[in-house]
Simulated assay, not measured.
Amino acid sequence: MEEQFVWVTTRRLRPGTLEDFETAWRPDPSPQGLRRAFAYWSEDGQEITGVSFWDSKETCDSWRTSESEAQRRAAMAPYVVEEREGFYRGRELTLPHG
């Protein structure tokens, strides 16, 4: 199985700001080395988890320390109450067919 490099960020948002947050959240330009990205939000719209898949830890770290990412974080800041993040390595699980 192919090893994957994943950055996961969960943010708690101010009530009623999900739509504005999503506008600020989209990176521009698209990060070098980013393969795929997903966003999942709670029913009340006050928590959002982003999961992004990268070519390597180095490409993710390069983006995380870039000026573009600093600007993106500044644009998101008015909507964010709390933030947690982590970088992981892993692979897809094989599920038994039964």
Rank of each mutant, 00 (worst) to 15 (best):
M1G: 13
E2T: 15
E3G: 05
Q4H: 14
V6F: 07
W7M: 06
T9H: 02
R11P: 00
L13E: 00
R14W: 04
R14I: 12
P15V: 03
G16K: 04
L18M: 06
L18C: 02
F21L: 05
E22Q: 13
A24G: 02
A24M: 06
W25P: 01
W25F: 15
R26A: 11
P27W: 09
P27I: 10
P27T: 07
D28E: 13
P29I: 14
P29F: 12
Q32P: 07
G33S: 05
G33C: 05
G33P: 04
L34I: 04
R36S: 10
F38R: 05
A39D: 13
W41M: 00
W41A: 03
S42I: 09
Q46C: 15
I48Y: 00
V51T: 11
D55N: 12
S56F: 09
K57H: 13
E58L: 08
T59A: 14
C60G: 06
S62Q: 11
S62I: 10
W63I: 04
W63E: 01
W63P: 04
E67D: 10
E69S: 12
A70H: 05
A70S: 07
Q71E: 11
Q71M: 12
Q71N: 10
R72D: 01
R72T: 09
R72Q: 08
R73C: 05
A74M: 12
A75E: 08
A75K: 13
A77R: 06
Y79Q: 02
E82H: 14
E83R: 15
R84M: 08
E85R: 15
E85Y: 15
F87E: 04
Y88G: 05
Y88T: 06
Y88I: 07
Y88K: 04
R89T: 08
R91Q: 06
E92N: 11
E92C: 12
L95M: 03
H97E: 13
